[in-house]
Design a binder for these strands. Structure first.
Lengths: 141, 141
DNA sequence: CAGCATCCAATTCGATACTG
DNA sequence: CAGTATCGAATTGGATGCTG
């Protein structure tokens, strides 16, 4: 109800195919390289907090900048909470909010799908790579 | 099948933090702009097939090129099947494979989350935009 | 320690033109 | 109709240097 659906060029219903659509926006977000990984790290620790450096350690390959950007986005979205200890040097802790925890559920389902089925995807890819004609879904037996 | 998490070859933490990891690869894929929307369109039609032009019509804003690239990826992954009618002009039909249908389930869960919670995300964003100090996750009243 | 600013490389996307 | 090819724009990601 935030914005009353922008008009599609062909005037069709503004389902989820506008850039404004929640699903679209969510997928845009979790599609960014490090977001879902950050959520997972925080979910695993939950309800414990995790410090910035610790997160970077667990998210192999993430740069300081990208972790920072990613967490900022999650905090802005209300999915992650941020707590600063004003010590020297400062310590910053993150953890999932209750809202973030609810997101972890469908995200975990997606991970499970990946672990169960990506091998099959790999096989399909290999078949395609071999120039299999793949007459479609009715394979000549 | 579930508990045998994919371990990295080097036997490290083995979790899902290598680029090779299935989850990572899946998220990379569904994170691309049009993939999940294409899956949704095909899922809605399933088990009926959908023609190329019809898909483009339903996916407002997608260009021919991007739809083509998106569908090629899905076909290569074994998530979508493709059938060509050798007429003139030719007709090409797409539909989800059984594997693709199983992906639609967790994807639908994600969409549902988005529809239920993105309004809350919007509110959080607005609060952030107003320069709320946000002393952390313990908010007063 | 945590994070910002800047610059640069890589990828993604879209518009356009062309083909069978 | 359903693509392919190509180019340029926009977005994204990564490395580095600097700050409190």
């Amino acid at each position: 109800m935030t914005s009353s659906t922008s008009r599609s060029p062909d005037g069709r219903r503004g389902d989820l195919f506008d850039p404004q659509c929640p699903t679209r926006r969510l997928l845009d977000r979790i599609g960014t390289k490090w977001t879902s990984m950050a959520v997972k790290v925080l979910a695993e620790a939950s309800p414990e907090e995790v410090r910035f450096a610790e997160m970077q350690r667990r998210m192999t390959g993430v740069s300081q900048k990208m972790l920072s950007v990613t967490l900022q986005g999650l905090v802005r979205d209300g999915l992650v909470g941020r707590r600063v200890e004003a010590t020297v040097p400062p310590r910053v802790y993150y953890r999932l909010t209750p809202l973030g925890l609810t997101l972890e559920e469908p995200l975990a389902a997606l991970r499970q799908w990946a672990e169960e089925h990506m091998a099959e995807v790999d096989r399909a890819q290999r078949r395609s790579a071999e120039g299999e004609d793949a007459g479609a879904w009715s394979r000549p037996g």
